[in-house]
Design a protein around this nucleic acid. Structure first.
Length: 317
DNA sequence: GCATCACCTAGAGG
DNA sequence: ACCTCTAGGTGAT
């Protein structure tokens, strides 16, 4: 399968979209972006207002691409709606064309469980290892790629195999969650049709005094909801967003909250009460597309920081 | 509720 | 060559 997609009336910046830390399965190979999505290999290249698409499967048609890259989202309207202040205006003008991606719920869930306490390079490596070890082999244009393994395969895999993929203590979480999905105690796809609050409660739910989804806290849950459950109002709060909020948006909070946030900075991660407070303030502030605001703010603060050893190379201006 | 602390591991910097 | 620290947080106490 090979075709071109005209982007003259559809703003998209492929580099920002694939490099902003929302997906972990894409890499550059000789001028092309290469990734595996839903068990098929995609090769993409953007040239001005054209998106060149090559794929290992006939299933990767125009409709598939449009769905994956959320080209149905009215990006100009969305950006206008989140453009509430100077900071966001800067992020928008710097990163215009960055789009959220519509991810597979299962893969998304595992990806962000793995993402705790890891930098983006390490996360990509872990996911790649999982696919290489227990994914399905796919040949395309003379190269070998691997699909992301189904829940059944992960649930049946030895813990040791997952640990060997570099997951460390996350191996247990991933395997436990896989079992819950296989047993259908949790049906991830169902969350798509519920509202944000309900879906969030479901992801964080307990049963018989035990957590349903080990490794899924509020931040991971927000990522799952935003990237794979159509909850564009979700606003994942990680260390970067937390720093950005404290730096650029302290005026949205009362002085006591700000004081507490500053004193909480000594902790490496955000405490639950603070997560809730920031979420409850920032989501209404940006509105129904707060998730887009989060992604622009996240990537903007990262490209603005001087490059550190642990950060991945970012597209220059 | 709310505060601490440990947690696998790879990679960078001292 | 070693040691220390940190990375898109969460679980257990």
């Amino acid at each position: 399968m090979e075709f071109q997609l005209s982007l003259t009336s559809i703003p998209l910046d492929l580099d920002y979209t694939l490099n902003c830390g929302q997906v972990f399965r894409w890499s550059r190979e000789g001028g092309w972006w290469v990734g595996v999505v839903d068990g098929l290999v995609l090769k993409l290249k953007q040239e001005e207002d054209t998106l060149k698409v090559k794929s290992s499967s006939e299933d990767a048609d125009e409709k598939f691409i449009k769905k994956y890259f959320r080209l149905d989202d009215p990006l100009p309207d969305i950006l206008a709606s989140i453009n509430k202040d100077k900071v966001m205006a800067g992020a928008i003008s710097r990163l215009n064309g960055l789009r959220l991606i519509r991810q597979n719920p299962w893969e998304c869930t595992v990806s962000f469980i793995c993402a705790t306490n890891k930098n983006i390079n390490a996360i990509q490596q872990m996911i790649s290892n999982i696919c290489k070890h227990i994914g399905r082999r796919i040949e395309f244009e003379g190269n070998i790629y691997y699909s992301f393994p189904e829940p059944e395969v992960v649930a049946g895999a030895d813990r040791q195999i997952l640990e060997n993929c570099g997951l460390g203590y996350r191996a247990k979480f991933v395997k436990e969650v896989a079992k819950r999905v296989v047993s259908r105690e949790v049906v991830l796809e169902d969350l798509e049709s519920t509202d944000y609050e309900t879906a969030m409660r479901t992801l964080l739910a307990h049963q018989n005094g035990r957590k349903m989804l080990l490794g899924v806290g509020p931040k991971v849950a927000d990522c799952i909801l935003l990237f794979s459950m159509e909850k564009l109002e979700a606003f994942p709060i990680d260390v970067w967003i937390r720093r950005a909020v404290l730096k650029f948006y302290p005026h949205l909070f009362d002085s006591i909250s700000v004081k507490r946030m500053v004193s909480n900075l000594k902790h490496r991660s955000i405490v639950p009460a603070e997560y809730e407070a920031v979420s409850k303030t920032m989501r209404p502030y940006f509105g129904r597309y707060a998730g887009y605001a989060q992604e622009y703010l996240f990537h903007y603060t990262r490209v603005s920081e001087p490059l550190t050893s642990t950060s991945e190379p970012l597209k220059p201006l």
